[in-house]
Simulated assay, not measured.
Amino acid sequence: MARFLIRRLGLMVVILFIVSIIIFSLVHLTPGDPARMMLGQEATEESLNALREKMGLNEPLYVQYLTWIGGIIQGDFGNSLKDNTPVLTVLLQKLPVTIQLTIMSFAIALIIAIPAGIISATRKGTFWDYFGTTFALSGVSIPPFFLGILLIFIFAISLGWFPPSGYIEPWVDFKKSMLLMVLPAVAVGVRLSAEITRMLRSSMLEVLGADYIRTAYSKGVLEKGVVIGHALKNALIPVVTVSGLQLATFLGGAVITETIFAVPGLGRLVVDAILTRDFPVVQGAVLFMAIAVVVTNFLIDILYSILDPRIKLTGGQS
Results as ranks from 00 to 15, higher is better:
V242L: 02
L266G: 04
D211N: 15
T122C: 06
V97K: 06
E46C: 05
M204S: 01
P115H: 04
I72D: 02
T257I: 10
R214H: 14
L48H: 07
G225S: 04
E53L: 12
P60K: 08
V90E: 13
A187P: 03
F4K: 13
E169H: 14
L81D: 08
I291H: 10
G253P: 05
K176W: 11
A194N: 01
V27S: 10
I228F: 13
L192G: 03
L91W: 01
N234K: 07
R310K: 15
V97I: 11
G78A: 09
Y167L: 04
Q100T: 05
D33R: 12
L39M: 10
Y167V: 01
G40N: 12
S141K: 03
F146K: 13
V271Y: 07
L66S: 13
I157M: 14
A121M: 01
I260Y: 02
D308L: 02
A109T: 00
V293W: 03
V226S: 04
F174E: 12
T241D: 02
L159P: 07
M38R: 15
A185L: 02
V295K: 10
K219F: 02
A216I: 03
I111A: 11
A231F: 00
I15V: 15
T67D: 14
G209C: 08
V271M: 10
K176I: 09
S141C: 03
V188A: 08
V271G: 07
W128K: 08
V295W: 09
V240P: 01
L147C: 07
D308K: 06
R52N: 09
V13K: 13
L151I: 09
W68D: 03
G10I: 09
L287C: 06
L180Q: 15
G125T: 00
D33Y: 00
P184C: 07
I69F: 10
L180K: 15
P164Y: 08
D308N: 15
S80I: 04
I168A: 09
A156G: 05
Y212H: 15
V182A: 12
S318F: 13
Q74W: 09
L5M: 14
D301F: 01
W128I: 05
V293M: 12
V270P: 03
H230D: 09
P309C: 11
F250E: 03
V19Y: 10
I260P: 05
I114K: 00
V182M: 10
I149R: 14
D33K: 10
G315T: 03
F153H: 15
G75M: 05
I274H: 10
Y217L: 12
A113H: 00
Y130D: 07
A156P: 03
Y217Q: 14
